[in-house]
Nucleic acid binder design. Structure first.
Lengths: 127, 127
DNA sequence: CTGGTCGTACTACCGTGGTAGTTGTAATGA
DNA sequence: TCATTACAACTACCACGGTAGTACGACCAG
């Protein structure tokens, strides 16, 4: 059931604005997204209503305006969505996903260094 | 608008059957998926029609039956979908995705070893 | 007081994934 | 030959992401 926290493209764009600002009015979100997307303000408002119904944002009234804030963290959304994709595409095998990233995405030397560092860091914690 | 190669859950399940068997009839796909999903045969057939319209499978007639085969590779679909997710969720930063995997997904020691091996392998090619 | 503007509420529409019933036809078996 | 069955074709729905117009109430400027 809990299809929760799987967001579409626009929804993620809106969340990014909210995550970056803690909270924002419809107008502010619209303003932030307009340059790349050129959406109508009502589109953003409608989407926010849908997102609230779904439980990923909430709002409070400030005068006539609604101030929206996220109710889920970026990390949680990432966890859910990456987990779902890993499950669907790699049968839940995380190393298969990383392996894929290494072979298909042309990872450069710097990135490889960075990855080694991340793993070493992780190993340190592990103990 | 090449939104191509972004597949839903059932579509991926169907593709996995086709990838595993090179080709399959509707009945064979249905048979393969029935245990976990309990779908009607017509559901599979309808989905295959939609997938063909979308260009990810093709079919040839064999007597009265249709034999479907994939027109895109698993690697290509993975590349597209992982790429999209990476873009949407991590602004295209692959190391951010891996970092996320390491911190949120509880990666065990064996997996870490495996990852180091993969990176070393990759580094060897790099030179 | 009154007209425009700001901003939410409501409604609508399209595309697509997912699910399946109904129908028509062709093959098959009694 | 005729009934049953196996299949594909067609049609229909729902949910949801995305997009936006219209309507209505509040608020501000003359």
């Amino acid at each position: 059931m809990a299809k929760t926290h799987t967001l579409g493209d626009l929804q993620l764009a809106i969340m990014r604005v909210l995550w970056a600002n803690q909270e924002a009015t419809v107008a502010q979100v619209h303003e932030a997204l307009y340059p790349e997307r050129g959406l109508a303000p009502t589109t953003v408002a409608t989407m926010l209503v849908k997102m609230e119904r779904k439980g990923v944002v909430q709002h409070r009234s400030e005068g006539r305006r609604f101030v929206y804030s996220p109710t889920v963290s970026e990390a949680k959304v990432q966890r859910t969505m990456v987990g779902e994709l890993t499950e669907r595409l790699f049968g839940g095998d995380v190393t298969a996903l990383v392996s894929h990233l290494l072979s298909e995405h042309d990872t450069n030397a710097d990135e490889l260094e960075e990855l080694k560092r991340l793993i070493a860091e992780r190993e340190a914690q592990e103990v």
